[in-house]
């Protein structure tokens, strides 16, 4: 007899239904299958009206974010044999629901628009020269596939209403702040506008990141420390001002 797994998939169209419910499906198990394979099987063979969002199926695009057995994860990267044969799949809870497993993550583009884009220094000779060791730090943040699982798991985003931009956006700001030739300091705006102080570094974002980016240690804390330079440490500020002056003189 062929092996089966049980999927409990959240179903709701909020424009019609007040409440959603879990619908149970049975899917044949294939060796090495991931949760997305099972969900796609349901969508293609059992109920084509099931709304799912997926794209690359290779953990490179970050489309198929969902909550699997209560943990935010990528469906394409979660092997069925690691989560058992009775799996509950629900949509990301931090974002407004569109339908079934699909949520509206559009607010993230609005936040990204508020973060100043890469602003190169003006004194550069073309072509630019940079050292590999300087590139490495920012490169970590560029692994981000914008799956927004960190936003989903972040209790500040999910459970409270604050100005905090969220982990993804601090990572984005850090990716440009730590670019060796960038001239902006985004920690100021993160602190003043982006609600950086609302992050209490509880590190869930770092735990769920499918790209294993050290979100808290390398992006958020670093940005917080830079904000300290700007607002809480007059000594650091003085040194910094002197340096900028030196550079502009040079």
């Amino acid at each position: 007899m062929e092996e089966k797994i049980i999927l409990n998939i959240y179903r709701q169209d909020p424009s019609i239904e007040q409440k959603g419910q879990l619908q149970k499906f049975e899917v044949p198990y294939v060796d090495g299958m991931v949760v997305l394979d099972a969900v796609r099987y349901v969508q293609e063979k059992l109920d084509t009206t099931l709304a799912i969002r997926w794209n690359c199926k290779a953990a490179k695009c970050g489309s198929c974010s969902a909550e699997i057995n209560g943990m935010p994860r990528l469906m394409c990267k979660t092997r069925v044999d690691t989560v058992g044969h009775n799996i509950t799949v629900t949509p990301m809870g931090a974002f407004p629901l569109i339908k079934d497993l699909v949520t509206d993550v559009g607010e993230n583009w609005e936040i990204l628009r508020k973060i100043p884009k890469f602003t190169p220094r003006e004194d550069m000779e073309s072509p630019w020269k940079m050292q590999q060791m300087d590139v490495e730090r920012s490169k970590e943040f560029r692994k981000c596939i914008e799956c927004f699982l960190c936003q989903d798991v972040c209790h500040v985003i999910r459970e409270h209403s604050t100005p905090y931009f969220g982990p993804r956006h601090v990572v984005k700001a850090a990716s440009m702040d730590m670019h060796p030739l960038d001239s902006e300091d985004r920690s100021r705006m993160l602190d003043q506008v982006g609600g950086l102080g609302f992050c209490n570094i509880t590190k869930c974002c770092q735990d769920v990141c499918p790209e294993h980016i050290h979100i808290t240690d390398n992006a958020i804390i670093q940005e917080k420390e830079r904000a300290v330079d700007n607002f809480y440490d007059p000594l650091a500020r003085l040194i910094k001002r002197k340096k900028t002056k030196e550079r502009s003189v040079a």
């Binding site: 169209d13 424009s15 969508q43 084509t48 009206t49 099931l50 709304a51 799912i52 569109i98 339908k99 079934d100 699909v102």
Partner: peptide, 9 residues
């Protein structure tokens, strides 16, 4: 089957 909203079918 289904509606126009997010219907991959």
């Amino acid at each position: 089957p289904g509606g126009r909203k997010y219907n991959h079918g």
